[in-house]
Design a protein around this nucleic acid. Structure first.
Lengths: 208, 208
DNA sequence: CGTTATTTAAAACGCTTGTTTAAACTGTTT
DNA sequence: AAACAGTTTAAACAAGCGTTTTAAATAACG
């Protein structure tokens, strides 16, 4: 495997675990078993390395998610919200074949990006991959046309919060569930549990 | 104002803004206009300062939340989930009189604590203030008895995720809402928007 | 008033951070 | 075989970190 990919792999799992700020280049390069200077040689800076780690996932996920959402938008009958959110399941889980622990790693990284580093990653994602959000909004609008643009905006961010936060701490949560309820769960189970929650949340009646 | 409180105030707003890892003691002491060494003198270490900042809020919030939830648990008729979650509104908003921007600062700190510093703050809160969680679970159980303990566990964490994540990025979200929808919102508005979402999410039917 | 304890001040500590440098090495091309 | 670009290496850089130390200023009390 190339040095570049060794760095990306090591950075990915450390970033997911301890955040971007919480991970040093020395930790990354020693896990990747490459020289410290290799990061700056191949990526230029730590910030660019973070972008590369995220891009690798987004370039894999984005087209799958696009076709999955488009399928829902273009079908004859009106979809319900549960269908819309279920459209995420397969593209997200397919990240697991793309890379070991791909699904949870990616979602954890997403969560880090929203809280670490004061939102520069949010800017990066919304400017580099805006069509993902657009399609998602369209799908929700088709499923629940009474919802105003403002309410869609807020409820989609609530949804992102639910999913991202859950996945950020999914390791800890799965441990607790195992200890307290003898309940062996994996990331696919968590996704199946969270879909009814967010679908119902987005579909909640509103009292203006 | 005492040196100790000047430090606590400065630390609180910086921590909420940039996270625990992302804030240095030098930033804190220079915003507080006190000497650098004062932190270690008064609090012993940065970690203890973090605990102190959180405790100041928890000691204010915890009793209010207790009485509010107890009121719901002890009332004659069965409460619905919307009532249960609404029990948080007043105690949370009262943090705003306790301290400027108290509500959003506290919720942002809570979010930081779950993602920064690998969960030591989660340990701190669940061991120091377990009765808050217990009462909350009891209230939800009364409102939705069909929900199993496992499902309550998961859905309450989804709820925490929604709220904490939303509040962590509430400043950014309120800015976007203002720009895109000419919608002037404050933290109370956000809370009013999120309550139907989480109440509906927790109350979602499940498909076993 | 004088003594003791508490609080602040400035400087330095040792350590880690991201980044840069310059030399050594690798494999291909002329 | 020599020249070459592409990589890797070890060492050093300046800057920032949390913490400690020492001395000066302030407050409390007999």
């Amino acid at each position: 495997m190339s040095t570049k990919n060794k760095i990306l792999d090591a950075a990915e799992s450390l970033f997911a675990d301890k955040g971007f700020n919480g991970t040093s280049l020395r930790e990354i390069t020693s896990l990747a078993e490459v020289n410290l200077a290799a990061v700056n040689y191949h990526f230029g800076s730590k910030k660019e390395l973070i972008k590369s780690v995220m891009s690798r996932y987004m370039n894999e996920l984005s087209p799958n998610l696009q076709t999955s959402l488009l399928l829902i938008c273009e079908q004859e009958q009106q979809p319900n919200l549960h269908e819309v959110f279920s459209a995420f399941i397969e593209p997200l889980l397919s990240l697991n074949v793309f890379r070991e622990n791909g699904t949870s790693n990616f979602l954890q990284l997403l969560g880090r990006g929203y809280t670490d580093s004061q939102g520069f990653l949010r800017w990066f994602l919304t400017t580099q991959y805006p069509e993902v959000i657009t399609n998602f909004v369209t799908a929700v609008q088709r499923a629940y046309p009474e919802l105003s643009a403002e309410d869609i905006f807020w409820r989609l961010h609530f949804t992102m919060g639910t999913v991202i936060f859950t996945m950020s701490s999914s390791d800890a949560l799965m441990d607790i569930a195992k200890n307290d309820f003898d309940q062996q769960v994996d990331i696919a189970d968590v996704i199946r549990k969270v879909i009814p929650f967010v679908a119902s949340g987005v579909g909640a009646p509103f009292n203006h």
